[in-house]
């Protein structure tokens, strides 16, 4: 039975060992992202439902600083660009450039998180605590879930960098970086939705 095409050593091994020819990890990432759609779907619709139901306290219109958030949005968008550049540079075998782009992506992500921390503290000073009203609970929960996703992405990017400097991130591993990229872009996509639905549409 080993002498069939798929059972031959070597040919059976890497790349096409799986039934579909795609790697387990990449498929698992996509399945996970599909599942995450429901997570953010629940959170966003909860927010939409509750944001105008507050009995008192600051309202979204009083607090949102659209120009500031727009800058954050641009930062995250740019990090998506640097992420694809990281993937494509590694596919070409340019390990040095790959490090630069990975580092830039992580840094842009960190800037975004910093912006979020700044936004939260500003809102808190203006009187919106987590328990102040129902808008506060919903807003902080939704954006914090997104922020946690970004932070997890930063940790993954940093571990990529560590691997790269230890000489373990060559072009043969470009798919690993691509898979992390998928996660990163998904987080960006979620922000595209949050930016429109939460911030821009009153």
């Amino acid at each position: 039975m080993t002498d069939t095409a798929l059972g031959t050593p070597g040919a059976a091994d890497h790349g096409h060992a799986t039934s579909t020819g795609i790697s387990n990890t990449k498929l698992a990432m996509w399945v996970y992202l599909g599942s995450d759609c429901l997570l953010f779907g629940s959170l966003i619709s909860t927010y939409l439902l509750l944001r105008h139901r507050s009995v008192g306290g600051p309202t979204p219109e009083e607090l949102f600083d659209i120009p500031f958030t727009s800058v954050s949005t641009f930062v995250l968008l740019m990090s998506s660009l640097t992420m694809v550049l990281a993937v494509s540079s590694l596919m070409r075998g340019d390990v040095r450039l790959n490090r630069i782009w990975l580092g830039t992506t992580a840094m842009l992500g960190a800037v975004f998180i910093g912006g979020q921390v700044y936004e939260f503290t500003t809102f808190y000073r203006e009187g919106l605590g987590y328990t102040t009203n129902i808008f506060g609970s919903a807003f902080y929960t939704l954006t914090a879930f997104h922020g946690v996703h970004v932070s997890v992405g930063i940790v993954m990017l940093m571990s990529m960098l560590v691997m790269s400097f230890r000489g373990n991130l060559g072009p043969e591993r470009s798919e690993t970086v691509e898979t992390i990229g998928l996660y990163w872009h998904f987080v960006d996509i979620v922000w595209i939705i949050i930016f429109t639905v939460v911030y821009l549409i009153p």
Partner: peptide, 11 residues
């Protein structure tokens, strides 16, 4: 938090 706090307007 106030997600299910009807006094605060929850549904």
């Amino acid at each position: 938090a106030n997600f299910f706090n009807v006094q605060q307007g929850a549904d």
